[in-house]
Design a protein around this nucleic acid. Structure first.
Lengths: 335, 335
DNA sequence: TAGTCTTGCACAAACGATTGTGCAAAGGTA
DNA sequence: TACCTTTGCACAATCGTTTGTGCAAGACTA
């Protein structure tokens, strides 16, 4: 039963029913009595205004897209949860899309979202820029905000970690603990995020006159498999590095798996600092020293940026940078 | 730019443009030439039919809701990923809702979804039945399928694990390994899922004349915190059980945390079998013996059931039962 | 030439709401 | 009684599509 049928039953116009139901009764001088009557009948017949009709009229559906590269990654699932919660409290619902780290899929999804005329998009890109991507993005008739794997070339509002600082944070801890020969397991090198983190790491290393590059740097990709392959190279050499920094959350799965395969002791044989705090970070043996992102804060800021831009197309600028912190546990030895 | 404006520019009617754009040109005898002209212009001006208008007209938005109690739980995030993928390939998009294990929130979300006139709902309920829940559910003008935490009272199409069998599977492995005094860390006891798993466990225990109940059974809830509390009771006693079965994925976080707190060795001091395979299950020390659900299969079946019911309201029956398997690793000692 | 097909498109009515405005009836004032 | 306000609601347009049907003009046939 829709609003018009209900109106008929009550001998009212759809107009009046709509106003009663949407709480605009006061504003449009619908009598208290009538409002009550409508409310009661609506309750009885389980009538709720159809969001499609309303959305069409209002030009907005109250829904924003959330596009992540891997909802299975606990960073993104935490982010999704926080974002969904924030948005819901603002009356939005969220459409979830998972690009599975595939740039092709990602573009298709964006085009889909554009078609659906959502009210916005919170986008954690795979990290690789294509023409079609840029095109789809600039065609978006709604605000877009990027998080995490930002694409700085795009000049969209975004919230991201100070990745270089986070990289420095990781190395510094290792240096403080007396490590000199430090390896790095990278994520997708095409992504700005990975480049920045690595830049931070390298910067400190270079400044200290420590070795870097070459066999000390492995990995390329955000999957567990790429983590394993990278880890094999780093951990499989004869002269093991003293420590390894894992620049992304999936990679650490590879490191732990390979270390166990090779019977390497952490931190006895090699120390580890891993990006991204995960539910199990403290539970493995040894408990991992991690670089933790303020997920909640990222979510909050992203949603704020989104709301700031409501009504407009994809906006300009509005960078928000958040800081990582280190959780020191036991995966780093003192030398 | 919308379809009508495009039509005007081309000196055509919106009708014709719509038909060209939706590939119905053939059916309605729009000339090939015109179709091409429309397609080209649409491409040029980046015109895509508004999904809201179309959805309103067609009476369906091509979107199904996915309501889970905790997207942060890796079982649900895996499930979400698989479901989103399946649905997308069928032309649906998914609206994500996270009830945070809160029955109140859950009902509100369902009511939301009903309002939005989605084309379906895949629901992993919190597990507690309320009147308002039943009411909201039966009011749904679209097919609903339940997964995981099913509510058998509701007689909706559903796909779930053979939970009792899974419970038996866990105990039997423990028995095979020589354990007799077996504890159980339960999830939310109000949920059918937990009751069934426990029923399976108890059934075998009783049949073997082994002790059960009392202090051997702890825990109530699906949060990490409830896991910790339950684990404290089980692991904190003077006469430790020989083994513990953890009936849900969050609980194991509690067990590992408390075991480490108490300096208990697994499986030296106590053996562990845990429900739900997680990305890190093999990476903790010791690698966990787990009961694994066929996530992919659950997703596929759920989507199939959903599609079978398309166009109707919430359907009846259509139970699908899938089987768990055990992944034997090293968290169970042989006595 | 007249009649019948075919081709190619347009008309108009939905779909289900929202919103500015108009218009009676009731109430108040002089 | 005559006029002005207020109160309470309805009219009608609008949002952007889709879809059954109607209707001309051209092509054929006889």
């Amino acid at each position: 039963m829709n609003i018009s049928e209900l109106a008929e039953e009550l001998n009212l116009s759809p107009t009046t029913v709509s106003r009663a139901l949407s709480g605009q009764g006061e504003k449009y001088r619908v009598s208290r009595a009538t409002v009550q009557r409508v409310l009661a009948a609506a309750e009885k017949h389980r009538v709720v205004p159809d969001a499609l009709g309303a959305g069409l009229q209002r030009g907005r559906m109250g829904m924003v897209g959330l596009l992540v590269p891997d909802i299975t990654n606990s960073f993104f699932s935490s982010l999704a949860r926080s974002i969904e919660l924030e948005l819901r409290s603002d009356g939005f619902s969220v459409q979830l899309c998972d690009s599975a780290e595939d740039p092709e899929v990602e573009v298709e999804l964006i085009e889909q979202i554009v078609k659906r005329r959502l009210d916005g998009l919170i986008l954690a890109p795979v990290g690789r820029l294509s023409d079609r991507f840029v095109e789809a993005m600039t065609a978006a008739p709604f605000p877009v905000v990027m998080v995490d794997r930002i694409l700085p070339e795009l000049d969209l509002p975004l919230v991201s970690l100070d990745n270089a600082a986070a990289g420095r944070l990781a190395v510094k801890h290792l240096l403080d603990c007396g490590h000199r020969k430090i390896a790095c397991l990278r994520g997708n090198r095409a992504s700005y995020t990975d480049r920045e983190r690595y830049r931070g790491v390298e910067e400190v290393l270079l400044r200290e006159g420590l070795p870097t590059g070459g066999p000390l740097v492995c990995g390329d990709g955000y999957t567990r498999q790429s983590g394993i392959e990278g880890a094999r190279k780093i951990l499989g050499t004869v002269d093991l590095p003293e420590a390894v920094i894992c620049l992304n959350g999936q990679g650490i799965l590879g490191i732990l798996e390979v270390a166990s395969e090779l019977n390497l002791d952490i931190p006895g044989d090699i120390s580890v600092v891993a990006f991204d705090e995960q539910p199990w970070s403290a539970l493995v043996s040894p408990p991992l020293t991690t670089i933790e992102q303020p997920v909640q804060e990222i979510a909050t800021r992203a949603v704020e940026l989104m709301k700031d831009q409501q009504g407009r197309g994809p906006g300009k600028s509005g960078h928000t940078v958040v800081e990582a912190r280190i959780r020191i546990r036991e995966s780093v030895a003192h030398r």
